[in-house]
Amino acid sequence: MEVLAGRPHELSPQLLESVERYRYKVFVEMLGWELDTPPGLERDQFDHAGTLYLAARDDEQNVVGTARLLPTTSPYLLGDVFPQLMGGATPPNDPLVWELSRFAAVDFTAPNGGALGQFSSPVAVGLLEKSIEMAAAQGAQRLITVSPLGIERLLRREGFRAHRAAPPQIIDGHPIFACWIEVTPRTVPAPRSPAAH
């Protein structure tokens, strides 16, 4: 797997179109999001010349994961569309905080299921590590992201330092939450153990 990253002028038009097609497949066809987007392609008002894209590709050059990074000092998804997920706190507007959105790492060859269906390891882990690296290069110290609840488990399981900003909310039938992710290297966690009872 390789992860390509850059702003639109740094990436090929073919790759950008592949990213939009992949996003349509994941977010519209698979997850059923009702988005105002051209048929077969998924893009929104946060896709523009300043957006930083990441695309994971397999050995056959197929896109197997996507993400995008936006500074919180400009309009971004959480701040403009989901501010309620901050639980009453003001969404960040800080050059040290970037937003990670449209994160997907779907393995379409594997059975789809569960809270982590949108995020198949190890593509998700590799893509997230690269996202953190890219954000750090932009001067970010933390990421904020709108995610399904299951991503929190994946972050914990894979040793990323993250915590929720507020309680999850049910949106379109799914528990969604705002998640802070520290821009630091992950640590391999110890196996979980059940509580003593």
Binding site: G87, G88, R153, R164, A166, P167, P168
Partner: peptide, 19 residues
């Protein structure tokens, strides 16, 4: 998994896995 909150703002949020 289970999720719990405090009734008052700012809202305390805590969740955990169970088996």
């Amino acid at each position: 998994y289970t999720e719990w909150v405090s009734p008052d703002e700012p809202t305390l949020s805590i969740g955990w896995d169970w088996e």
